[in-house]
Design a protein around this nucleic acid. Structure first.
Lengths: 240, 240
DNA sequence: CGAATACTTGAGTGGGGTCAACGCAAGTGG
DNA sequence: CCACTTGCGTTGACCCCACTCAAGTATTCG
């Protein structure tokens, strides 16, 4: 059911850019190849020359590079509706890898189909361009956190961002949220050691900001956490 | 002379995408307003809602945010031919600032003119989209350096990248290069303290990798520096 | 019920930060 | 022309945040 699979994408785009009837149909008619990926399994690898783009239908994916054994930098998390490797349309070789964080359903769309879509619907080209720009905005925040923020603020910011995004696509009530990252993952995202992530999370817990269950977080003090993280969601362009 | 000002942009784009005659003319006809900026002067500020984009004609610009007094993160440097705030076309509010690093000439182009350009020449839309994607690729490397690399490797990578880009637009011979960043700037780019940048540069000098003159660097050992930085320029998409 | 994976905690260490001077060159103004 | 100022680079001393090493405790799963 191609329609079912494209649904998260349409829903995500619609949140922001009221799609015209023809446009929505065109997206729903994109030829999709749906695949399953296991946790830790690579979806695309550094050095690949992809001819397809990947849309997250279900699950979570992330971008990363390995610098040396045991030195990994995670650069972004992706949730249903996201197309993490859209840049592959215009950059021939992947300069990083894309992997599944948990069992995930990924829909692959040929580059040719995307190009045709943009040719017939130039405005959709701009819509997707905009999506890649929002992705950049997230990376700027990420860089700022990793670079100049304390470990608490950095981790807190990542949690705020993730829950906010999940909430925006209806996968969280805004308080409790699926959060399947391991502490190792979070460490590689925030450029901290596993041990320090653990202590930082303990601090956040003991300060009453949140609790940390099996594969999920619950935020108990949004204002406090936002203040600690200096989190202002406007860069996510959610306009609700 | 609008034609003269658009020249760095055309030259930069031509390096990669052989422009068709009509396209080049269309770019040269873009209405430009040329302005001068002093070192440290903001070109666009966080929170602004720009109606123009900025092209660097001469000089150097950089993206940054201030987290708290004396905590600044620099996210990118821009050189002639670059359009640092192209994302403003699709994101209404600036989530960071843009400033001049040295006396710089900036050409401003109205968003409306850019939109018309893309309407008439859809392929140019893709060319500029691609430019924003290369910008993202640079930021991914930057993030990786700041996050998971040692201070030497990080600083070395930034120098490698800068000299390579300057070389690509003909503003360096590949060995010696204008390098007007202060050590404070470099620190805010690499998320290191001024003092530590100074020591790191001393190490790089004493190891014979480079020398550091007034407002310029000279690289004495490219292979060594590239290895230390793990610098592979392919992400810059220079394809020469 | 092992075996693997993830989480937790303690102890010791080190890379990079902070504080504080000082050198030096380029204005600037009396 | 020299005193003063300002900004950048340089170096030393001390300190702390986060890392590493190491051991132990849940959990999950075949």
């Amino acid at each position: 059911m191609a329609q079912l699979s494209a649904e998260p994408l349409v829903r995500k785009l619609e949140r922001v850019h009221a799609l015209k009837p023809g446009e929505q149909e065109a997206i729903e008619k994109l030829p999709l190849t749906v695949k399953q990926f296991d946790p830790g399994q690579d979806i695309v690898r550094e050095g690949d020359r992809p001819t397809i783009v990947c849309m997250v239908v279900d699950g979570i994916a992330f971008r990363y590079t390995i610098i040396e054994p045991d030195k990994r930098q995670i650069m972004a998390f992706y949730i249903p509706g996201d197309i993490p490797d859209l840049e592959g349309l215009f950059l021939d070789t992947m300069d990083h890898s894309l992997s599944a964080l948990r069992p995930s359903t990924i829909a692959q769309i040929p580059h040719t189909a995307m190009r045709q879509l943009f040719e017939k619907h130039p405005r959709l080209g701009e819509v997707f361009w905009r999506e890649t720009l929002i992705d950049s905005a997230m990376m700027r925040k990420w860089l700022t956190c990793v670079g100049r923020r304390s470990s608490d603020a950095c981790i807190a910011h990542m949690i705020c961002e993730f829950v906010t995004r999940m909430h925006a696509i209806g996968l969280s009530d805004g308080l409790t949220c699926d959060f399947p990252m391991t502490q190792t993952d979070l460490g590689d995202a925030a450029a901290l050691s596993l041990v320090h992530v653990n202590r930082t999370l303990r601090d956040l817990r003991e300060s009453g900001f949140l609790s940390w269950g099996s594969q999920s977080v619950t935020i108990h003090d949004w204002p406090g956490l936002m203040k600690l993280a200096q989190f202002d969601p406007s860069y996510l362009q959610l306009k609700n």
